[in-house]
């Protein structure tokens, strides 16, 4: 038992996923459809924001995991 459980069914997760996916698709579509002047670096090029967003989410997951591990250890102390 490693303390991990699958996410609960129901709640706001499904709705949030649909809304986020719609925003992401709309954003990526509009971003690639429009004409871009030369971006000042790769992060500002089409699709760059999606990469930054994915990195931001991974950062959140990593931080949350670290915080959880720390607090869980502290609790067992």
């Amino acid at each position: 038992m490693n303390g991990l459980m699958p996410p609960k069914r129901g709640g706001a997760g499904g709705v949030a996923l649909v809304l986020c996916a719609s925003a992401a698709l709309l954003g990526v579509g509009l971003d690639f459809l429009q004409r871009h002047p030369d971006p000042f670096w790769i992060g500002a090029s089409p699709g760059g924001a999606a990469a930054i967003g994915a990195a931001a989410a991974l950062f959140c997951l990593a931080v949350a995991r670290l915080a959880h591990a720390f607090l869980h250890r502290k609790r067992s102390d």
Binding site: P7, A24, A49, L71
Partner: peptide, 29 residues
């Protein structure tokens, strides 16, 4: 559009990745 589209995709992708990869753990005391 050049400003709105990146913001929408950034927040949308962040939300999708988080919602798909999150695992439910018992919360601390």
């Amino acid at each position: 559009v050049a400003r709105l589209a990146p913001q929408l995709q950034l927040m949308g992708v962040a939300g999708v990745v988080y919602l798909l990869l999150r695992t439910r753990r018992p919360l601390p005391a």
